[in-house]
Design a protein around this nucleic acid. Sequence first.
RNA 1: GGCUGAGUAGCAAAAUGGUUAUGCAGCGGCCUGCAAAGCCGUCUACACCGGUUCGAUUCCGGUCUCAGCCUCCA
Length: 474
Amino acid sequence: MKIYNTLTRKKEEFQPREAGKIGIYVCGMTVYDYCHIGHARVMVVFDTVARYFRYKGYKLTYVRNITDIDDKIINRANENGEDFTALTQRFIDAMHEDEQALSVLPPDVEPRATQSIPSIIAMIETLIVKGLAYVGTNGDVFYSVNKFKPYGKLSGKNLADLQAGERVNVDFAKQDPVDFVLWKMAKPGEPYWESPWGNGRPGWHIECSAMSTCCLGNHFDIHGGGMDLQFPHHENEIAQSEGATGETFVNVWMHNGFVRVDNEKMSKSLGNFFTVREVLKQYQPEVIRFFILQSHYRSPLNYSDEQLNDAKAGLTRLYTALRGVEINDAALEDEYKKRFEQAMEDDFNTPVALSILFDLAKELNIAKKEGNQERIKMVAITLKYLGGLLGVLFYGPEDFLKQEITGGGELRLPLPSVSGDGTAVTFIDKQIQARVDAKKSKNWALADQIRDELKQQGVILEDKPDGTTTWRRE
RNA sequence: GGCUGAGUAGCAAAAUGGUUAUGCAGCGGCCUGCAAAGCCGUCUACACCGGUUCGAUUCCGGUCUCAGCCUCCA
């Protein structure tokens, strides 16, 4: 199993610290707004990683935190005139709904910053005792970056460059502009927790150090998150954790690439983001997941309708191949399974893994054409099984192909119903029957008219060799 | 300016020192009443310039372009 390690800038053979066991920590959401497709990518990517480790038999502990206190949350709650806990709870619930829609399995532990205050305070105290942190002139507690020699090892930066490139906004409370805050004093009216340094709240970076070591130990296997967290967030985490414990913090750092819109990073500040629930009005949730899996997790991923439509077309091809095939517990096609594993074990190469699914679909179509029942069963079960490892292809083919996207705005959870609008389905069936009759009397004009009318409504008819007709949505 | 990373055919996206990626789209054929789906065949590549090599899209150096980080960000 090879994984690209940001720390060493190369693919390395992955060795768990303890045979058969893996601890992984992923930086999750700051919950003050809905998840956008960029957040969805992190969720789907690391869900896929977690699924694969489990499939390989590792005992995995997957931790993904929730940042439920910070300046943006406080500001947003003030704007809304609501308590910040009401705000965060609402968006935590929304996030869980989005995850479920995308077939992202819940992490094993989902610690929240506000519920980890004691361990955060303990870690800051240790840092102060070790001389790595100090109380600034404004009462905030800062990390003394210069005292941590390896600072910059993850992001390839060095302190001299950082100091040279300082922004004009110098904070006079700090001893050094590169220092960062560990504990922030509360202003009047702000939420706070008691601490040895006064009432306040944790800085952003310290929560992840505290929560990860708390859940996984001082030294664990994998730490993940978006590329943009590399610096300063993860760099600071290393400084805090290794500074406090004196141990190596993390063996492997994994960072996923961004989702882009028009060649630009999708982000809140640029305002060019699409929320998961927005996109779900137009596409099935599995299409979004498939879209994400179609590129390697470290590559940029361009968001566009064209790309989503592409993903949909690809998924449709796979489901079409599975159509009408009974999935039972036949043996797996070993050759394809092996190729699939090879792809996944090369730094989670999901585009190649998906290409193997397409190869299987072609095999399946050929077997169907030849009427080779044995082969059909074997290839179909393999396709469905390998798809399942990626968190796709778990619907019934008819469910997927006939699912209607209502666009009503409600969140679409998994398990779509084919006949959410039963009357539509009844109508389609009636029209198909009328067309069968027209065909029997060789009234091609009427038959074509019926087909065209349904097509206009997004329903595609397909005549089968045995004289029956099936349909699917466009 | 400093530090990362990337540039592959119409679009998207992988691998690879010499041999088919894959999906969508196109073209020809089979199938079909005609379609759709499917199958068979087929056309568009490796940013540019040098170097290493018997041979480079793949390794090395340089150029150009793009993106990201250096401020909150997944």
